[in-house]
């Protein structure tokens, strides 16, 4: 491969990798909530610190899980951060517990564990598919449930990532799941790539899955190249 071919190859490969992970996670999410779920085209981005803040940070209250990945065998490390904006999380709890949509407006222990479970399932679906594609195993550590400002939750991930890779950029695999469900009917659809936020009159949800590969990005590239060479008998 020459340089240009190489960069296209990477871009495609990363997209595919993100797609597979996100696709599996989306079907889990859809199964759990019995709703159709829209998946945005997964993006692999090289973001500057302050851009990241605009994209997913800030002071909005979110509910979700942070999972650290540490696998010494495959050398895949990093973080998976899954979160629902507060209102979305309440709607998901209603869907899971079979309550009328709009019932939950605070998280009790039951709600917390429901959301936590959804996030766990999404994390493992993502990891499984990701690992499978790369031909390695990825073992997530026990996830941490969290409810706070999105930007504040991000700090720790960034700090750990940046201590390993002292750079002002950070690589992220970013996917957004969305379900709009205005009357609680199962069938729903929105244009993919639609950026509008769920409003209070709708009972849908919004969910973000972000994978921070940190320093294992180079390992991921190695694995992708190996895979390419294997299939093309280079």
């Amino acid at each position: 491969m020459d340089k240009k071919e190489m960069s296209y190859f990477y871009l495609d490969a990363f997209k595919e990798l993100g797609n597979i992970g996100a696709g599996h996670a989306a079907s889990s999410l859809s199964g759990l909530t019995s709703r159709s779920v829209q998946v945005s085209v997964p993006e692999v981005k090289l973001l500057l610190l302050n851009e990241l803040d605009d994209e997913i940070g800030g002071s909005n209250i979110v509910i979700g899980n942070i999972t650290q990945i540490k696998d010494e065998m495959s050398e895949i490390n990093g973080f998976i951060y899954i979160f629902f904006p507060k209102e979305s999380a309440y709607n998901v709890v209603d869907m899971l517990l079979g309550l009328d949509l709009g019932t939950t407006n605070d998280l009790d222990e039951m709600g917390e564990s429901a959301i936590s479970e959804v996030c766990n399932i999404l994390t493992s679906s993502f990891c499984d598919a990701f690992a499978d594609f790369l031909g390695v195993s990825i073992l997530p550590s026990p996830p941490k449930f969290c409810e706070d400002m999105s930007g504040a939750l991000l700090d720790y991930i960034l700090a750990v990532t940046m201590e390993e890779v002292p750079d002002d950029n950070v690589v992220v695999f970013l996917t957004r799941f969305k379900c709009v469900d205005d009357l609680g009917d199962a069938g729903c659809s929105v244009a993919v790539g639609d950026n509008s936020v769920i409003n209070d009159k709708e009972f849908g949800f919004d969910c973000y899955l972000i994978f921070f590969p940190g320093k294992s990005m180079s390992k991921i590239i190695d694995l992708l190249v190996k895979k390419y060479e294997y299939y093309n008998n280079v």
Partner: peptide, 16 residues
Amino acid sequence: SNGENKLLKATGLGSC
């Protein structure tokens, strides 16, 4: 500076 009449803000400070 004061003449600018602006406030400085840092949102979502966690470990930062």
